[in-house]
Amino acid sequence: MKKLLILGIAALALTACTDTKVPFLSSKSNNTNSSSSSSSTGIFANLKEQLNGREFIIVTEGYNSKTSIGFKGDRVYGFSGINRYFGTYQISGGKFIFGEFGLTTLPGTQEAMTQELKFLDILKNNKSIKLSGDTLTLISTEGIELNFKDPKAAVTQSK
């Protein structure tokens, strides 16, 4: 009963308004590291250019098969299992630095909502990212690896 009450409160917090700011998913996005070398800045700028305009679908087991992450300019968006999320991002020190996420407000089962919150938390707490061809890999600070594929790149390669 306690778990259901806690999940209900979490669901209420997520569904309170359309343009929800989720405090536990916020990161300090004004964090800049002026001591970064220009070569590492160039690598990450290139990565941001490679991500721009692309959307990746998760291939890691245990997640809704439509879970995604997409990039357009400084914006990030996607589907987190039940809801759509959106916000801003930067790449710094080989990882994503996200601003606050906004979420749509659709309800779901307890299991699906728990999985969605876990996914969003892993995004926020990433320690490294890697783009290799049509595969985007994100590793959390806990060592959890999320793998995403760009379905458009796979279609282009097979033609």
Rank of each mutant, 00 (worst) to 15 (best):
C17E: 08
K66W: 02
P107V: 05
I69A: 02
T105S: 10
E111K: 09
I69R: 00
T15P: 01
L47P: 07
F148Y: 05
N46W: 08
K95R: 14
I69S: 00
V76M: 01
L138E: 05
I82P: 00
S40H: 09
K149H: 10
N33S: 15
N147S: 15
L103Y: 01
E49V: 07
S38G: 08
D150I: 06
T67V: 15
G87K: 00
L120T: 00
F98Y: 15
A154C: 08
A11L: 13
I129C: 02
T15I: 10
T67W: 03
I9A: 13
E55M: 09
A153H: 07
L106K: 07
R54M: 05
D19I: 07
T67N: 07
E111Q: 11
A10R: 11
I122K: 07
S29H: 09
L117Q: 14
S65T: 10
N125S: 10
E55P: 07
N52C: 02
K149Q: 12
E116I: 02
C17P: 01
Y63K: 01
K159S: 07
D19H: 11
Q90M: 09
D19N: 13
K152W: 00
K2S: 11
Q115T: 12
T137M: 09
K118H: 14
S80R: 01
L51M: 06
T156E: 14
Q115H: 10
K149T: 12
S92P: 01
L146N: 06
Q157P: 01
N147M: 14
N52D: 14
Y63L: 05
K124R: 15
I82K: 03
S35A: 14
T41L: 15
E49I: 08
D74P: 04
K66E: 04
I97K: 06
T156P: 00
F96T: 02
I129M: 05
A154Q: 13
T20E: 11
G108P: 05
N64R: 06
Y89K: 01
K48Y: 04
T18M: 10
N52Y: 02
E111A: 14
I57N: 10
I91V: 11
F86S: 03
I91D: 01
N83S: 00
E142G: 09
K3Q: 13
T88V: 02
T41S: 14
S36P: 07
N46F: 08
S27W: 02
G73M: 03
F98G: 05
K124V: 06
I9H: 10
G81W: 03
N83V: 00
F44N: 14
G94K: 04
Q110N: 13
F96P: 02
T41Q: 14
G102V: 01
A10Y: 10
K95P: 01
T135R: 09
S65R: 14
A153V: 03
I69P: 01
S128D: 07
K21E: 11
T141Y: 03
